[in-house]
Design a binder for these strands. Sequence first.
DNA 1: TAGGCCATCTGGTCCT
DNA 2: AGGACCAGATGGCCTA
Length: 412
Amino acid sequence: MFSTSFEDYCDFNDSICSNDSGIDRSYTDSFINSTNSTPIKHETSDLGISLTPTKDVRRKLFNDDYELFQNPTDDVKVFEENIQNINTSTPKKEKKPKDPNKPKRKYANGKNRISRCKSPTQLMKIKRNRRMKANDRERNRMHMLNEALDRLRCVLPTFPEDTKLTKIETLRFAHNYIFALSETLESLDNINSGQAPVEDYNLNYEKLQNYSIGGEKITKDAFRDIFPVPNKPEGCNDGSYRNFQGFSRPFPNGSNFMQTSEGVLINVGNVTVSVNNKGGNCITSTTGTGFFTHPSSFGEDMNQQVYQYERYGAPSYNEGYEANNMPGEYFNQKNYEIFKNAFDTAAKSRKIEKTEDYSNYGRYNNSMYGYTDTNCFNGNTNEYLQNSYYYNDQRCYRNFYNRAPSVVNAQI
DNA sequence: TAGGCCATCTGGTCCT
DNA sequence: AGGACCAGATGGCCTA
């Protein structure tokens, strides 16, 4: 089975590996990312072929293996016998019945290219090469899967001080977060239809996150149990109290919706929208802030408004409603047009950078990984790493508190 | 030190 | 043949 020529095991010319095998890359990655991932083995007795840095080391490794092949110990013999009797492979799936109408595939006549005129030694090298390439592909595949999970983590409303969610926690939390957002939309629909909202949940991220980490799949009933309807704020008439609860950090009044004498503030997800009665409108998201200001209200400062609410408390819905005679329907056609125009203007003003192409294995580099929040910035200086994925695709949600807003002025 | 989590290796299966 | 996907095995790291 094994070649008796030692040199056959020592021919580690990299040319036997295809250009996309990523061998050098893997070796480099093992140093770059050694603190974040299991380093690729260099000194173990497994194949360890291309992953070892020098030919001398490779020779030593294979010399050891070669000696073992030539003179297997009793332990090795017993092990090899036992291993034949253990089936650790993926269980076979039942084969689908063949479709007789499906056209048969054509195969070339004669021996295939690989098995033709190849010595056992050459075949072994070919197999080993295939295995290395398969390992490399599998590694990259898992890396991309982890990239996707990291992206998911960044859009989930976790807090900076939290430890990184595990994979399963991330998936559970994402599921429950989507559920919670759906509940928000349902409440919003009830507002628009003139009905009282279904619930005014006393929501917060930490509860939802902790629930998710516990491994429970959230349901409507569980949702109501976990987030009970809070007591109405003082000054609100229960009969006409209308409010909906988003899932972002609430305003000082504990709600995600705030009706004031100046206008309306709505906070849903990562976006806060301020519609000012005088035309000074603002959209704030995790990616920045855009102000859409009517000429008559240039100089209006939303931050001052928020500060005023924090200090003196926001007026209740009824106060705002009565004072301004606001219509009950906030998301009517007119407001929709206002929002649409504002977003369109903002979209034209912002240049969207192309995100990194992950599909290029050759350019793959673990140093680009955003495993920790610190990867989003340059250490403690909070400078953006221009070559980081995070810089362009804005995944670093949890650190955007530090980001200065970009301001866009437009007339609506 | 046990257990959880993770990265990696590996062989099997399915599909093109 | 070869790539994608999957699941089991393994070893390292970390924490209670």
